[in-house]
């Protein structure tokens, strides 16, 4: 999967011929300061906004999880999955996998923030899409819930290993979840680094040198 894209908002250029290639089944973390165009990149990959350039081998159907769960509040967790096309069995199976079997018929507005984000993750994984786009889906959670959700995310990802582009500003998160890290700066790639091939999620205590390298790339 390759992209070669340019994007401007009025007179402001976000990317000028940003070229990236993603291998099948890898988890790529995109880091960068606010306003660098991380979310814009996801919108382009999902073909949600107009842009210049080409997307090569980018699948049409994508799974997408946002910073906020974006669930229909009057529908239950299960109904939210059915809303995007899942059948009842598939919805039940997914919710059981993330530990929501007893909560699946509860209106989503009555679920906790972490539970809502689990449902949103299930929705992103439903349909076994080859491309998963995650726009800071863990950022609003506390550390404990975040760790639980990392486990749930990796468990779901292991099943079909979709190519995953995870946008975050959290260096720790990129260390724990990503196989590759890309740092964007001024519309260009400031760092493109493959992380050690170890089991995910990685231990939070490790990788001090890698984290320092990412931080330097973001700062410099």
């Amino acid at each position: 999967m390759r992209i070669d894209v340019s994007k401007t908002y009025g007179k402001q250029t976000v990317f000028s011929r940003l070229q990236l290639a993603f291998s099948d089944g890898e988890i790529v973390c995109i880091l960068g300061a606010s306003g660098v165009g991380k979310t814009t990149l996801l919108h382009i990959l999902a073909r949600q906004i107009p842009f210049e350039g080409t997307l090569t081998d980018v699948p049409d159907g994508v799974g997408y999880a946002y910073q906020e769960p974006r669930l229909l509040p009057h529908l239950s967790a299960k109904e939210n999955l059915i809303y995007v096309g899942a059948d009842e069995n598939a919805a039940n199976e997914l919710l059981i996998k993330v530990g929501l079997e007893t909560q699946k018929d509860k209106p989503s507005s009555q679920l906790s923030g972490g539970e809502q984000q689990r449902v949103a993750l299930c929705r992103a994984f439903w349909g076994k899409n080859k491309l998963l786009l995650l726009d800071e889906p863990f950022s609003s959670l506390d550390v404990i819930r975040k760790q639980d959700l990392y486990q749930a995310f990796i468990a779901l990802w292991q099943e079909n290993k979709p190519t995953t582009v995870l946008v975050t500003h959290d260096i720790e998160e990129s260390w724990e979840l990503a196989q590759r890290v890309i740092v964007l700066k001024n519309g260009k790639v400031a760092l493109d680094m493959r992380l050690p091939d170890t089991a995910l999620p990685r231990k939070i205590d490790d990788g001090a040198d890698v984290k320092a390298q990412i931080l330097r790339a973001m700062r410099d």
Partner: peptide, 24 residues
């Protein structure tokens, strides 16, 4: 609008969007 955007990304049929999102 965030729910509308989500529905568009997941290609939810318009009829379903009307009955399940817009009307309620």
């Amino acid at each position: 609008t965030k729910l509308i955007e989500m529905s568009r990304v997941y290609k939810v049929p318009l009829r379903k969007q009307i009955t399940t999102l817009y009307l309620p």
